[in-house]
Computed example of a mutant assay.
Amino acid sequence: MYAVLLAAGEGTRIRPLSSDVPKPMLPVADRPIVAHTADTAVEAGVDKLVVVVGYEGDAVRDYFGDSYRGVPVDYAVQRERAGTADAVAAARDHLTAEPFAVLNGDNLYDPDAIAHLFEVGPAVGAVRVDDPTNYGVLETADETVTGIVEKPDEPPSTLANAGVYVFPAQARNWLEVPASERGEREITDVLARVIEADTVRPVVLDRWLDVGRPWELLAANEWKLDELEPRLEGTVSDDAVVRGPVVVESGASVDAGVVLEGPVLIRSGASVGPNAYVRGATLVGEDAHVGHAVEVKNSVLMQGATVGHLSYVGDSVLGRDVNFGAGTTVANLRHDDEPVEHTVKGERVSTGRRKFGVVAGPEVKTGIDSSLAPGLALSANATTDPGEVVDRDR
Protein backbone atom coordinates (compact mmCIF):
# COMPACT_ATOMS: atom_id res chain seq x y z
CA MET A 1 0.00 0.00 0.00
CA TYR A 2 1.27 3.44 -0.99
CA ALA A 3 -0.22 6.59 0.53
CA VAL A 4 -0.60 9.79 -1.47
CA LEU A 5 -0.51 12.86 0.81
CA LEU A 6 -1.98 16.00 -0.73
CA ALA A 7 0.15 18.95 0.40
CA ALA A 8 0.29 21.28 -2.61
CA GLY A 9 -2.20 23.95 -1.57
CA GLU A 10 -1.48 27.41 -0.25
CA GLY A 11 -4.53 27.58 1.98
CA THR A 12 -6.34 30.77 1.01
CA ARG A 13 -8.90 30.38 3.80
CA ILE A 14 -6.20 30.36 6.45
CA ARG A 15 -4.42 33.50 5.28
CA PRO A 16 -2.41 35.37 6.45
CA LEU A 17 -0.77 32.38 8.18
CA SER A 18 0.00 30.78 4.81
CA SER A 19 1.75 33.89 3.47
CA ASP A 20 5.13 32.17 3.55
CA VAL A 21 4.40 28.50 4.20
CA PRO A 22 1.94 25.96 2.74
CA LYS A 23 -1.01 25.29 5.00
CA PRO A 24 -0.05 21.63 5.62
CA MET A 25 3.22 22.88 7.16
CA LEU A 26 1.55 25.02 9.83
CA PRO A 27 2.40 23.79 13.34
CA VAL A 28 0.21 21.44 15.34
CA ALA A 29 1.93 20.61 18.63
CA ASP A 30 5.50 19.48 17.87
CA ARG A 31 5.22 18.95 14.09
CA PRO A 32 3.43 20.27 10.98
CA ILE A 33 -0.14 19.22 10.19
CA VAL A 34 0.99 17.00 7.32
CA ALA A 35 3.40 15.14 9.60
CA HIS A 36 0.44 14.03 11.71
CA THR A 37 -1.18 12.77 8.49
CA ALA A 38 2.03 10.94 7.59
CA ASP A 39 2.21 9.43 11.08
CA THR A 40 -1.31 8.07 10.67
CA ALA A 41 -0.40 6.46 7.35
CA VAL A 42 2.88 5.01 8.65
CA GLU A 43 1.19 3.54 11.71
CA ALA A 44 -1.39 1.95 9.41
CA GLY A 45 1.43 0.13 7.63
CA VAL A 46 2.08 1.91 4.32
CA ASP A 47 5.15 0.93 2.31
CA LYS A 48 5.79 4.34 0.74
CA LEU A 49 4.62 7.94 1.07
CA VAL A 50 4.08 9.97 -2.09
CA VAL A 51 3.77 13.63 -1.11
CA VAL A 52 2.19 15.96 -3.66
CA VAL A 53 3.74 19.43 -3.36
CA GLY A 54 3.20 22.78 -5.05
CA TYR A 55 3.06 26.11 -3.21
CA GLU A 56 6.30 26.56 -1.22
CA GLY A 57 7.01 22.88 -1.81
CA ASP A 58 10.61 23.10 -0.63
CA ALA A 59 9.36 23.49 2.94
CA VAL A 60 7.68 20.08 2.67
CA ARG A 61 10.71 18.46 1.03
CA ASP A 62 13.07 19.86 3.65
CA TYR A 63 10.95 18.46 6.45
CA PHE A 64 10.48 14.90 5.16
CA GLY A 65 13.63 14.32 3.12
CA ASP A 66 13.94 10.92 1.43
CA SER A 67 12.39 8.89 4.23
CA TYR A 68 10.11 9.40 7.20
CA ARG A 69 10.09 7.04 10.18
CA GLY A 70 11.78 4.41 8.05
CA VAL A 71 9.30 4.70 5.16
CA PRO A 72 10.57 5.93 1.75
CA VAL A 73 9.20 9.28 0.57
CA ASP A 74 8.68 10.30 -3.05
CA TYR A 75 7.49 13.70 -4.29
CA ALA A 76 5.15 14.72 -7.10
CA VAL A 77 4.55 18.29 -8.22
CA GLN A 78 1.05 19.58 -8.88
CA ARG A 79 1.79 22.53 -11.15
CA GLU A 80 -1.65 24.06 -11.72
CA ARG A 81 -3.44 22.88 -8.57
CA ALA A 82 -6.65 22.24 -10.48
CA GLY A 83 -8.39 20.05 -7.91
CA THR A 84 -7.89 16.94 -5.82
CA ALA A 85 -8.07 14.48 -8.72
CA ASP A 86 -5.48 16.59 -10.51
CA ALA A 87 -3.27 16.35 -7.41
CA VAL A 88 -3.49 12.55 -7.31
CA ALA A 89 -2.90 12.40 -11.07
CA ALA A 90 0.39 14.24 -10.49
CA ALA A 91 1.47 11.27 -8.33
CA ARG A 92 0.41 8.58 -10.79
CA ASP A 93 3.90 7.73 -12.04
CA HIS A 94 4.95 6.99 -8.45
CA LEU A 95 2.21 4.40 -7.95
CA THR A 96 2.53 0.68 -8.68
CA ALA A 97 0.03 -2.01 -9.56
CA GLU A 98 -1.21 -2.12 -5.98
CA PRO A 99 -4.04 -0.40 -4.10
CA PHE A 100 -3.23 3.10 -2.89
CA ALA A 101 -4.56 5.48 -0.25
CA VAL A 102 -5.23 9.21 -0.59
CA LEU A 103 -5.15 11.51 2.44
CA ASN A 104 -5.41 15.28 2.75
CA GLY A 105 -2.26 16.76 4.23
CA ASP A 106 -4.25 19.38 6.15
CA ASN A 107 -6.56 16.91 7.92
CA LEU A 108 -6.22 15.12 11.24
CA TYR A 109 -7.58 11.59 11.34
CA ASP A 110 -8.49 8.98 13.93
CA PRO A 111 -5.53 6.55 13.56
CA ASP A 112 -7.44 3.37 14.44
CA ALA A 113 -10.09 4.09 11.83
CA ILE A 114 -7.47 4.77 9.15
CA ALA A 115 -5.77 1.46 9.91
CA HIS A 116 -9.14 -0.27 9.52
CA LEU A 117 -9.82 1.63 6.29
CA PHE A 118 -6.51 0.39 4.86
CA GLU A 119 -7.47 -3.18 5.78
CA VAL A 120 -10.93 -3.22 4.14
CA GLY A 121 -10.31 -1.06 1.05
CA PRO A 122 -11.56 -0.05 -1.42
CA ALA A 123 -13.04 2.27 1.16
CA VAL A 124 -13.86 5.87 2.00
CA GLY A 125 -13.63 7.51 5.41
CA ALA A 126 -16.65 9.34 6.78
CA VAL A 127 -17.77 11.20 9.87
CA ARG A 128 -21.27 11.45 11.29
CA VAL A 129 -22.54 15.04 11.34
CA ASP A 130 -25.74 16.63 12.63
CA ASP A 131 -26.23 18.80 9.52
CA PRO A 132 -24.90 17.08 6.40
CA THR A 133 -26.16 19.75 3.97
CA ASN A 134 -22.76 21.48 3.84
CA TYR A 135 -20.81 18.31 3.02
CA GLY A 136 -20.38 15.63 0.43
CA VAL A 137 -22.70 12.94 1.80
CA LEU A 138 -22.36 9.20 1.29
CA GLU A 139 -25.24 7.10 0.02
CA THR A 140 -25.03 3.62 1.50
CA ALA A 141 -26.79 0.26 1.31
CA ASP A 142 -25.87 -3.06 2.93
CA GLU A 143 -22.69 -1.60 4.39
CA THR A 144 -21.39 -0.44 1.02
CA VAL A 145 -21.14 3.00 -0.56
CA THR A 146 -23.50 3.39 -3.51
CA GLY A 147 -22.89 7.07 -4.27
CA ILE A 148 -21.90 10.50 -3.01
CA VAL A 149 -24.00 13.68 -3.18
CA GLU A 150 -22.51 17.16 -2.75
CA LYS A 151 -24.26 19.48 -0.28
CA PRO A 152 -27.72 17.94 -0.70
CA ASP A 153 -30.91 19.68 0.46
CA GLU A 154 -32.21 16.25 1.51
CA PRO A 155 -29.19 14.24 2.67
CA PRO A 156 -29.38 10.48 2.10
CA SER A 157 -27.44 9.84 5.31
CA THR A 158 -25.53 11.61 8.09
CA LEU A 159 -22.19 10.30 6.78
CA ALA A 160 -20.03 13.19 5.54
CA ASN A 161 -17.05 12.47 3.33
CA ALA A 162 -13.83 12.87 5.37
CA GLY A 163 -11.55 13.04 2.32
CA VAL A 164 -9.58 9.82 2.88
CA TYR A 165 -9.76 6.92 0.44
CA VAL A 166 -8.32 3.55 -0.43
CA PHE A 167 -8.56 2.94 -4.17
CA PRO A 168 -7.88 -0.23 -6.18
CA ALA A 169 -4.82 -0.21 -8.41
CA GLN A 170 -6.85 0.33 -11.60
CA ALA A 171 -8.01 3.70 -10.28
CA ARG A 172 -4.62 5.00 -11.49
CA ASN A 173 -6.25 4.97 -14.93
CA TRP A 174 -9.39 6.84 -13.86
CA LEU A 175 -7.85 10.10 -12.64
CA GLU A 176 -8.45 12.15 -15.81
CA VAL A 177 -11.95 13.27 -14.83
CA PRO A 178 -13.59 16.35 -16.38
CA ALA A 179 -13.65 19.64 -14.51
CA SER A 180 -16.57 20.25 -12.18
CA GLU A 181 -18.84 23.30 -12.15
CA ARG A 182 -16.27 25.13 -10.02
CA GLY A 183 -13.55 24.38 -12.56
CA GLU A 184 -11.70 21.67 -10.62
CA ARG A 185 -11.10 17.99 -11.21
CA GLU A 186 -12.64 16.36 -8.16
CA ILE A 187 -11.46 13.20 -6.42
CA THR A 188 -15.12 12.41 -5.69
CA ASP A 189 -15.61 11.79 -9.43
CA VAL A 190 -12.85 9.19 -9.22
CA LEU A 191 -14.64 7.70 -6.21
CA ALA A 192 -17.84 7.49 -8.28
CA ARG A 193 -15.98 5.47 -10.91
CA VAL A 194 -14.60 3.13 -8.24
CA ILE A 195 -18.11 2.64 -6.84
CA GLU A 196 -19.31 1.57 -10.30
CA ALA A 197 -16.51 -0.99 -10.64
CA ASP A 198 -16.01 -2.35 -7.14
CA THR A 199 -17.43 -2.74 -3.65
CA VAL A 200 -16.54 0.31 -1.57
CA ARG A 201 -16.84 0.18 2.20
CA PRO A 202 -17.67 3.18 4.40
CA VAL A 203 -15.42 3.49 7.44
CA VAL A 204 -16.65 5.82 10.16
CA LEU A 205 -13.98 7.92 11.90
CA ASP A 206 -14.55 8.65 15.57
CA ARG A 207 -12.56 11.86 15.21
CA TRP A 208 -11.57 14.01 12.24
CA LEU A 209 -10.64 17.63 11.67
CA ASP A 210 -10.21 19.60 8.47
CA VAL A 211 -7.77 22.41 9.30
CA GLY A 212 -8.96 24.98 6.80
CA ARG A 213 -9.34 28.19 8.81
CA PRO A 214 -7.36 29.82 11.61
CA TRP A 215 -9.62 28.76 14.46
CA GLU A 216 -9.38 25.17 13.23
CA LEU A 217 -5.62 25.41 13.70
CA LEU A 218 -6.39 26.22 17.33
CA ALA A 219 -8.71 23.20 17.50
CA ALA A 220 -6.00 20.98 16.00
CA ASN A 221 -3.54 22.10 18.66
CA GLU A 222 -6.12 21.55 21.38
CA TRP A 223 -6.45 17.95 20.13
CA LYS A 224 -2.77 17.11 19.74
CA LEU A 225 -1.35 19.02 22.70
CA ASP A 226 -3.70 17.06 24.92
CA GLU A 227 -2.01 13.82 23.75
CA LEU A 228 1.56 14.82 24.70
CA GLU A 229 3.28 13.01 27.54
CA PRO A 230 4.58 15.52 30.15
CA ARG A 231 8.33 16.01 30.27
CA LEU A 232 10.66 18.76 31.39
CA GLU A 233 13.89 18.58 29.43
CA GLY A 234 14.77 22.26 29.20
CA THR A 235 15.83 24.67 31.93
CA VAL A 236 12.95 25.23 34.35
CA SER A 237 13.47 27.51 37.35
CA ASP A 238 12.89 26.04 40.78
CA ASP A 239 10.63 29.04 41.34
CA ALA A 240 8.36 28.18 38.40
CA VAL A 241 5.05 26.33 38.88
CA VAL A 242 4.08 23.52 36.50
CA ARG A 243 0.58 22.08 36.58
CA GLY A 244 -0.95 19.45 34.35
CA PRO A 245 0.49 18.10 31.09
CA VAL A 246 3.42 20.36 30.20
CA VAL A 247 6.35 19.74 27.86
CA VAL A 248 9.46 21.91 27.98
CA GLU A 249 11.80 20.73 25.24
CA SER A 250 15.56 20.63 25.51
CA GLY A 251 17.00 24.05 24.79
CA ALA A 252 13.94 25.92 26.09
CA SER A 253 13.99 27.98 29.29
CA VAL A 254 11.33 28.85 31.86
CA ASP A 255 12.24 31.66 34.27
CA ALA A 256 11.36 32.36 37.91
CA GLY A 257 7.76 33.13 38.79
CA VAL A 258 6.31 31.50 35.68
CA VAL A 259 3.12 29.45 35.96
CA LEU A 260 2.50 26.83 33.26
CA GLU A 261 -0.93 25.13 33.24
CA GLY A 262 -1.14 22.40 30.63
CA PRO A 263 -1.62 21.30 28.06
CA VAL A 264 1.34 23.52 27.16
CA LEU A 265 4.29 22.85 24.85
CA ILE A 266 7.41 25.05 25.06
CA ARG A 267 9.59 24.19 22.08
CA SER A 268 13.36 24.19 21.81
CA GLY A 269 14.95 27.63 21.84
CA ALA A 270 11.87 29.31 23.32
CA SER A 271 11.94 31.31 26.55
CA VAL A 272 9.17 32.17 29.00
CA GLY A 273 9.12 34.75 31.75
CA PRO A 274 9.95 35.80 34.33
CA ASN A 275 6.53 35.96 36.01
CA ALA A 276 4.55 34.89 32.93
CA TYR A 277 1.34 32.84 32.94
CA VAL A 278 0.87 30.34 30.09
CA ARG A 279 -2.24 28.21 30.13
CA GLY A 280 -4.81 26.34 28.10
CA ALA A 281 -3.82 24.49 24.96
CA THR A 282 -0.85 26.70 24.13
CA LEU A 283 2.06 26.13 21.79
CA VAL A 284 5.12 28.35 22.25
CA GLY A 285 7.08 27.60 19.08
CA GLU A 286 10.79 27.26 18.48
CA ASP A 287 12.76 30.40 19.40
CA ALA A 288 9.56 32.20 20.48
CA HIS A 289 9.65 34.48 23.51
CA VAL A 290 7.03 35.21 26.17
CA GLY A 291 8.18 38.17 28.23
CA HIS A 292 7.86 39.40 31.81
CA ALA A 293 4.33 39.34 33.29
CA VAL A 294 2.75 38.19 30.03
CA GLU A 295 -0.35 35.99 29.98
CA VAL A 296 -0.88 33.65 27.04
CA LYS A 297 -4.00 31.51 26.95
CA ASN A 298 -5.07 28.84 24.42
CA SER A 299 -2.91 30.21 21.63
CA VAL A 300 -0.32 29.29 19.02
CA LEU A 301 2.93 31.25 18.85
CA MET A 302 4.80 30.16 15.76
CA GLN A 303 8.56 30.12 15.35
CA GLY A 304 10.31 33.29 16.49
CA ALA A 305 7.15 35.05 17.71
CA THR A 306 7.63 37.46 20.64
CA VAL A 307 5.07 38.78 23.09
CA GLY A 308 6.57 41.72 24.98
CA HIS A 309 6.18 42.26 28.72
CA LEU A 310 2.87 43.18 30.36
CA SER A 311 0.81 41.83 27.43
CA TYR A 312 -2.22 39.53 27.12
CA VAL A 313 -2.80 37.11 24.22
CA GLY A 314 -5.84 34.82 24.30
CA ASP A 315 -7.27 32.35 21.76
CA SER A 316 -5.00 33.69 19.04
CA VAL A 317 -2.55 32.56 16.37
CA LEU A 318 0.69 34.51 15.93
CA GLY A 319 2.69 33.77 12.80
CA ARG A 320 6.43 33.51 12.32
CA ASP A 321 8.51 36.34 13.83
CA VAL A 322 5.52 38.36 15.03
CA ASN A 323 6.55 40.96 17.60
CA PHE A 324 3.88 42.24 19.99
CA GLY A 325 5.11 45.37 21.75
CA ALA A 326 4.92 45.74 25.53
CA GLY A 327 1.40 46.17 26.83
CA THR A 328 -0.34 44.77 23.76
CA THR A 329 -3.76 43.48 24.75
CA VAL A 330 -5.87 41.05 22.70
CA ALA A 331 -9.63 41.06 23.26
CA ASN A 332 -11.16 37.64 22.66
CA LEU A 333 -14.81 38.04 23.73
CA ARG A 334 -17.70 40.05 22.30
CA HIS A 335 -19.82 42.19 24.63
CA ASP A 336 -22.99 40.50 23.32
CA ASP A 337 -21.47 37.07 24.02
CA GLU A 338 -22.15 35.93 20.43
CA PRO A 339 -19.60 33.80 18.55
CA VAL A 340 -16.67 35.84 17.29
CA GLU A 341 -16.50 36.46 13.54
CA HIS A 342 -13.38 36.43 11.37
CA THR A 343 -12.66 37.34 7.75
CA VAL A 344 -12.23 34.39 5.37
CA LYS A 345 -11.60 35.18 1.69
CA GLY A 346 -13.07 38.65 2.12
CA GLU A 347 -16.21 37.67 4.03
CA ARG A 348 -16.97 37.80 7.74
CA VAL A 349 -17.96 34.35 8.97
CA SER A 350 -18.71 32.94 12.39
CA THR A 351 -15.90 31.00 14.03
CA GLY A 352 -18.44 29.19 16.19
CA ARG A 353 -16.21 30.05 19.13
CA ARG A 354 -17.30 32.20 22.03
CA LYS A 355 -13.67 33.25 22.50
CA PHE A 356 -11.38 34.03 19.61
CA GLY A 357 -8.66 36.67 19.49
CA VAL A 358 -6.43 37.71 16.60
CA VAL A 359 -4.65 36.09 13.68
CA ALA A 360 -1.33 37.77 12.96
CA GLY A 361 0.59 36.94 9.80
CA PRO A 362 4.37 36.64 9.68
CA GLU A 363 6.43 39.61 10.90
CA VAL A 364 3.49 41.63 12.21
CA LYS A 365 4.59 44.28 14.73
CA THR A 366 2.42 46.09 17.25
CA GLY A 367 3.32 49.32 19.01
CA ILE A 368 3.33 49.41 22.80
CA ASP A 369 -0.08 49.46 24.49
CA SER A 370 -1.93 48.44 21.31
CA SER A 371 -5.45 47.06 21.81
CA LEU A 372 -6.68 44.47 19.32
CA ALA A 373 -10.35 43.59 18.82
CA PRO A 374 -11.76 40.03 18.71
CA GLY A 375 -11.58 38.27 15.35
CA LEU A 376 -8.98 40.63 13.93
CA ALA A 377 -6.73 39.63 11.01
CA LEU A 378 -3.36 41.34 10.64
CA SER A 379 -1.71 40.64 7.30
CA ALA A 380 1.97 39.83 6.92
CA ASN A 381 4.20 42.76 7.92
CA ALA A 382 1.28 44.85 9.21
CA THR A 383 2.02 47.31 12.03
CA THR A 384 0.09 49.25 14.67
CA ASP A 385 0.98 52.55 16.35
CA PRO A 386 1.70 52.88 20.07
CA GLY A 387 -1.54 53.13 22.02
CA GLU A 388 -3.67 52.39 18.96
CA VAL A 389 -7.07 50.64 19.20
CA VAL A 390 -7.43 48.36 16.17
CA ASP A 391 -10.92 47.10 15.38
CA ARG A 392 -10.64 46.46 11.62
CA ASP A 393 -8.51 44.00 9.69
CA ARG A 394 -5.19 45.43 8.57
Score class of each variant (00 low, 15 high):
Q170N: 06
V296I: 13
D142S: 14
E154Y: 02
T343V: 09
V145E: 06
L301M: 12
P32Y: 05
G105A: 11
I368T: 07
A97S: 04
V259M: 08
Y165M: 06
A380Q: 11
A373Q: 05
P122T: 08
R348I: 07
I148F: 13
G147D: 14
D39P: 01
S250W: 15
R172I: 05
F64K: 10
L5K: 03
D66V: 06
V42E: 06
E388S: 00
G269Q: 07
A87F: 11
T133S: 15
N104M: 03
V204K: 02
S67I: 02
S371Y: 08
V296C: 00
P362G: 01
T96Y: 04
R13V: 03
R207N: 15
V307Q: 05
S379D: 15
G70M: 09
G387T: 11
V71S: 03
E10Y: 13
A270T: 00
Y2M: 00
T383Y: 07
A281R: 07
G367Q: 11
A29P: 15
L191E: 11
A29R: 03
R128V: 13
N134F: 14
S157D: 04
V149C: 04
F356N: 02
V296R: 06
V21C: 13
T188R: 14
S237M: 14
R128I: 12
L5W: 00
D336E: 08
E150M: 11
L6R: 01
E186Q: 06
E176P: 00
E347W: 02
A141G: 04
E261F: 07
V194W: 12
A126P: 00
A288I: 03
P99F: 03
N134M: 08
V124S: 06
P155G: 04
D66R: 10
V340W: 10
W215H: 11
L49W: 00
R185Q: 14
L6Y: 03
H335G: 07
A219G: 00
V340F: 14
A59N: 08
D385G: 11
D131F: 04
V340L: 13
E56H: 12
V204H: 04
V88P: 06
H309G: 15
A179N: 09
R193V: 10
L26R: 13
D30T: 04
V258W: 13
V284Y: 05
T351F: 14
I195K: 09
E181F: 08
P274F: 07
S311E: 03
P22S: 14
T158P: 05
V77F: 09
G105L: 12
K151Q: 13
F118D: 14
I195L: 09
V200T: 13
Y165D: 05
E286M: 02
A192I: 02
Y165F: 15
D110H: 14
P245M: 02
P27A: 11
S271Q: 04
L376N: 03
K355S: 12
L205C: 10
